[in-house]
Design a protein around this nucleic acid. Structure first.
Lengths: 342, 342
DNA sequence: CATAAAAGTGTAACCGGTTCCATTATGTTT
DNA sequence: AAACATAATGGAACCGGTTACACTTTTATG
């Protein structure tokens, strides 16, 4: 273990001042004779010199780090979002500090405190819905905050990137109706989440458009974490007049729902038509291949990163940006006509 | 956008010196009268003061950031590893800088340069196998490097955390043999990777133990990325004497392999028994539920973080630590006796 | 009560870069 | 060749914390 050379070591070894070395380090910050530049570069090479980011950031914290605050990364949706965000950020020379909240406001609060202390230039987050003051404070500090996938209505000043949740649930439900289903159920995210609410709204719209009656018993909100999806499934199956179609609009609960259906011996689509909000490769490998709603994760990531870096310091723009991208309904084989009732 | 207060602002507002404020910030670094502490804390609160991490790290770069360098995060295995590493790190007050290499040495090299400049205290990585000099340099600097999942034989001085690859492939292959299979194929990672080599070694051991002949045509190395898994599958299926059992020991290629099998209309396990190295929930939802090798990701993460933080600065310990955890073979329904040949 | 020990506080240097500004070297113009 | 613009370099302050050390005030001890 050797201690690292500093800019002064390089300057001394090259027989120049630290100012010159700094200029070599930051091309464009001032003139340096070609010969000098070469000599300094050589010295840096032989000494194995690398400037410390921490020191550089002290002067004018440059937008070199971005906070990515997700609910959790074991969920494939968030995992792929993280992957895309990291790639997109890297392509711009930006680093990503990854944090998770586990959907817990307390943890979220701690993570936000850390992000404040790090003076990250931007944050891309799936907010829990609380910590409003902290979010506001972050923006006051000039941090570019972007909510992705969800938003917080009480914070209308924050940029948001989501899919068109209402429309995606509407089209999925409409497909069920078009196949002749009259008892269509939906399992969505919690009512406290914008995704949950919007998707249920789209579901209702589709029912109205199809002239179908709304039955509150067929609308289930399940938490993102835990086994809520399985329980909701069981509840739906044990209804007196059970649904013939099910839209699983809570990505985090898709496997829990499917597991419960399998254990209950429900055959898809004969007994129950199913559409899930989930775009992993395995949905195609199921028997039958599942009809899905595909969320364009790469677009979400790209727009999020762009917005999180768009206001280098201090936003003058008045109103926040809201990007809404369209999801895609991929029809495979898990939807059919309902079997006639006895 | 307001500019942030500094420690001097706080000191001035509280009518004390910066040293006192610093002591309030770092309990244990020196005595502060209770009354003073309270007053300073109040001022920090009202001013909305948060110390800048960059400035703190200038003095003695404390082990507060960890680099996590993975091949990619869209792969569920790595995603869950990332999730666990982040959680484990957070529980110790450590932040995680997430980076991906896409299995590309050039990109890896760039990421490593960044990590050097950031002076992270530790790095947890799935190395591509190149950039040997940089890895050495990192260690010389006192960075705690931990390879997870794979290792680089040419770098024996690095701590490693892996599953017992040889044993896991051996037991999977042995299970096939125990079911009476004589033509057992394996699709592993590239021969350049330690995981690929070790798993093939275990496979060979199992064949020997079962007194089965080794056929090099049944051993396929597929790259981690791309469609290599599908191609290898097709090649195996079109063999003159095709296998009756297949061990998919390349997690990144599992879905590609299964997709190809589905398209080829191969029924599992009637025509082909299958065991996959993959522990996602969906493996249980398949028809039939897949027999899998489960890798204890949480253990990998826990040990990795522990090692990456164990040598606060400057390792005196002579030899590196190698942690090898056991994978678990979960028997479900994708393995059966081979059907008798005509 | 004198005095030593401990507690509380302040001053200033330092970490490793960046950058303003002054100074000197080089080059161009007429 | 004088006059002046431009290039190249160096000195030193600064970013926002931490900390060694000096100094003052309390508290403890004999």
């Amino acid at each position: 273990m050797q201690k690292q050379p500093t800019i002064r070591d390089v300057a001394a070894a090259a027989g120049v001042s630290v100012a010159v070395v700094s200029r070599v380090l930051n091309p464009g910050s001032g003139p340096v004779a070609a010969a000098t530049r070469g000599r300094v570069s050589d010295v840096m090479e032989t000494l194995g010199y690398h400037p410390r980011t921490a020191a550089r950031e002290l002067k004018h914290g440059p937008p070199t780090t971005l906070g990515l605050l997700l609910a959790d990364v074991s969920n494939p949706f968030f995992a792929r979002l993280a992957d895309q965000v990291v790639q997109e950020a890297h392509s711009r020379g930006i680093q990503v500090l990854l944090m998770t909240t586990q959907e817990d406001d307390q943890l979220e609060s701690e993570r936000l405190a850390t992000l404040i202390e790090r003076r990250v230039s931007g944050i891309i987050a799936t907010p829990t819905g609380n910590n409003l003051d902290t979010w506001k404070k972050l923006q006051d500090m000039g941090t570019d905050v972007v909510f992705v996938d969800r938003s917080i209505p009480a914070l209308p000043a924050v940029d948001v990137v989501t899919i068109n949740n209402t429309e995606s649930a509407r089209s999925a439900t409409a497909l069920m109706a078009a196949h002749g289903h009259r008892r269509i159920a939906i399992i969505s995210g919690p009512a406290s989440s914008t995704t949950g609410r919007d998707r249920i709204a789209g579901y209702r719209e589709a029912l109205d458009a199809a002239g179908l009656e709304q039955d509150e018993l067929l609308i289930r909100s399940a938490a993102f974490r835990g086994a809520a999806g399985g329980d909701a499934t069981t509840a739906l199956l044990s209804l007196e007049d059970p649904p013939t179609a099910l839209v699983v609009a809570n990505t985090a609960q898709v496997t829990a729902v499917l597991r419960r259906l399998a254990h209950a011996g429900i055959s898809i689509p004969e007994e129950l038509s199913v559409i899930v909000f989930e775009d992993s490769p395995w949905t195609e490998l199921m028997t039958p291949p599942l009809t899905i709603v595909r969320q364009p994760i790469d677009l979400l990531a790209r727009h999020s990163v762009r917005l999180a870096l768009s206001n280098p310091s201090g936003k003058t723009s008045g109103k926040p940006t809201v990007v809404r991208v369209d999801a895609e309904l991929i029809e495979r084989s898990s939807v059919s006509r309902p079997k006639p009732r006895p």
